[in-house]
Nucleic acid binder design. Sequence first.
DNA 1: GTATTATATAAGCATAGAATAATATGTTGA
DNA 2: TCAACATATTATTCTATGCTTATATAATAC
Lengths: 114, 114
Amino acid sequence: MKGSTVEIDKTATILKLLGDKTRLTMVKILDTNDCCVCEFVEIFKASQPAISQHVRKLKDVGIVREKRRGQWIIYSLNRDSEYFPMIQSLLDHLPNQDFKLKELEEQGLRISCE
Amino acid sequence: MKGSTVEIDKTATILKLLGDKTRLTMVKILDTNDCCVCEFVEIFKASQPAISQHVRKLKDVGIVREKRRGQWIIYSLNRDSEYFPMIQSLLDHLPNQDFKLKELEEQGLRISCE
DNA sequence: GTATTATATAAGCATAGAATAATATGTTGA
DNA sequence: TCAACATATTATTCTATGCTTATATAATAC
């Protein structure tokens, strides 16, 4: 049991980060799809710097990873994070958000990253 | 699947509340023990108003319940909350905090509520 | 090289959150 | 009724967070 738990203080930090509508939705989306910043900008109707700052926070604590693909930077869930099991069981209680990406595809706004 | 999920916006609100070291530890403790404010004051070495405001926030969103017992007000986890399943699976990833109450007992500081 | 696109970073501001100090409410027991 | 105890509430202050604006970095296409 001990081996599967994470520190309570650090967990609070993670939950505070996930306690934001935008970031929580981001992580839920990343649970089933990799995404780039420009897609999040469309999905959340937010500014590019705002989105960049959100993903940066997630990256700083190791929840997400980035990898460059050409001019785009693709973000993905870091399934090797020590917090991933907890985050995963959390996400399981949230409704699927894939429809947001489907909407993008229908608008032809997802070509950039695929 | 749909029936077991909770709204993403409301969930963010819950996670923000749990994204505080003190409140997260409180909830973990309440998972196995009911507690009163004076005990939390001892456990967290915090002021009484600070603790009162923390539990109030948890109460306002329905995570915890209160019941008066004489001059004390006993807080307990509200297992009927729509968020309880999610919270429960979250708490399962945290180390048990019962030792904090044990320390109180050893100091004779838990007589008040039992 | 320059222009364009995608993303990151930094500074400034405005709002939200947490702690304190002071006060109020409510219960118990003499 | 009054004193003591437990808790709640309010106002204030301080810090943290999120967004915007402006600018910087990096890749691509010409």
